[in-house]
Nucleic acid binder design. Structure first.
Lengths: 151, 151
DNA sequence: GACCTTATTGCAACCAGTTGCAACAAACAT
DNA sequence: ATGTTTGTTGCAACTGGTTGCAATAAGGTC
C-alpha cells in the first residue's frame, strides 16, 4: 500500500473525514523528502487539485500534526516548515546571532524524553526540535565586545 | 542600582545606543514579574512615553532577547510572551490536545544543556522552554479512538 | 439512490509580527 | 556648543497565519 494511503487510513480511523483537499495535502507531503512551507504545499497541490484555499491547507496541516503524521518546525526563517513524521528524527541547533543551523541526532533527546515520560507522564514531541542559542563561533565574538557586569 | 539601569548598562556595553524607546521597554519588562505580550508592553510604555511605535517595541524586544536580557516564549496562545531573563528558570509542557500548560523545573534540562555544550560547543537558550506534546490524560483518551495500523 | 447530520471548506476580514526606506537623533569628535 | 556619522525610529505596506460564518459535501442511514 502506498505510503499516503496508509496515512489517509490513519485520518479516517481517528474519526476525520477524507476530503480531496486533505488527501492532496497529505500526498504532496508524503511525496517530498525535505521540508516544505505552507506556500509550497499550496502551489504543489494546485497542480493536481486547483480548488484549494489556503485556510484548508493550514487546517489540514494542523490536523495532521495533531495526529502525529506531520511535523511542524520553526527554524527561524519567518515561516513554519512541514514534513512527514519519520523515524529516526533529527534536531536543529539554531544560532540567534549568525542564524546558522546545525543538525544533530535524535539520540541527544532520549534521556530528556524518558525523564518527561517518567516524571510527568508527558509524551513530548521531541522529534524535529528547534533549539535556539549561541554557536561556539558567535560566543567567542560576543565575549569580546561584552564588558558587562565588570563595573 | 535599580535593576533596569543595570540592564541598560549591558545594552550600551554591547555597543548599542540607548534610546528612550528601548529604555522604556526595558523598564516595563523589569517592573513586571510575569509574562507580557508585545501589545501589553506597548500599552504600558505609552503611559510614560507616548511616542512609541510598535516596530520599535518588536525591534527592542528582539535586541534584548539577543543580549539574553529577555526571554521570548511561545506558549501556543497565538502570540509570543516576553519576560525578564531570570535565574532559576522554569519550563512549560504544553498539551497539543487540551492546550493545558504544566510548569516544570529548570533542572530537567541540565543534562541536555551540558551535552550540547560539550558535544557541539553550542550554548542553548534552554531557559523558559516550551515543549509541546501530549499530556497523560489526553494520551489515554487518544488511545481509545485510535485504531490505526491495526489492519 | 435520496436524505440527513454535521464536519469541512471558501471567503473575506482580521491579527501578530516584519520590512524598506526616508527622517531623525544618540554618541562621539572637534 | 556644533557638526558628523551611522544606528534607530516611524510609517505604511506587507507577510504568514487565523477566524467567524454561511455554503458545501463526506459519510452514515433508510
Amino acid at each position: 500500500m502506498p505510503q499516503h494511503l496508509e496515512l489517509v487510513q490513519s485520518l479516517r480511523d481517528a474519526g476525520h473525514r477524507l476530503t480531496p483537499q486533505r488527501e492532496s495535502v497529505l500526498a504532496v507531503i508524503a511525496d517530498s523528502d525535505g521540508h516544505l512551507t505552507a506556500e509550497e504545499i499550496l502551489a504543489r497541490v494546485r497542480q493536481r487539485y486547483p480548488y484549494l484555499n489556503k485556510s484548508a491547507v493550514y487546517r489540514s496541516l494542523d490536523l495532521l500534526t495533531e495526529l502525529s503524521l506531520v511535523n511542524q518546525t520553526d527554524l527561524g526563517h519567518g515561516r513554519v516548515e512541514y514534513e512527514l513524521h519519520r523515524h529516526p528524527h533529527h534536531h536543529h541547533l539554531i544560532c540567534r546571532h549568525c542564524k546558522g543551523v546545525q543538525q544533530i541526532d535524535q539520540a541527544v533527546m532520549n534521556s530528556l524524553h524518558k525523564k518527561l515520560e517518567k516524571d510527568f507522564g508527558f509524551h513530548a514531541d521531541l522529534d524535529h526540535f528547534a533549539i535556539f542559542g549561541t554557536c561556539h563561533k558567535c560566543r567567542a565574538r560576543a565575549a569580546k565586545s561584552a564588558k558587562r557586569h565588570t563595573h
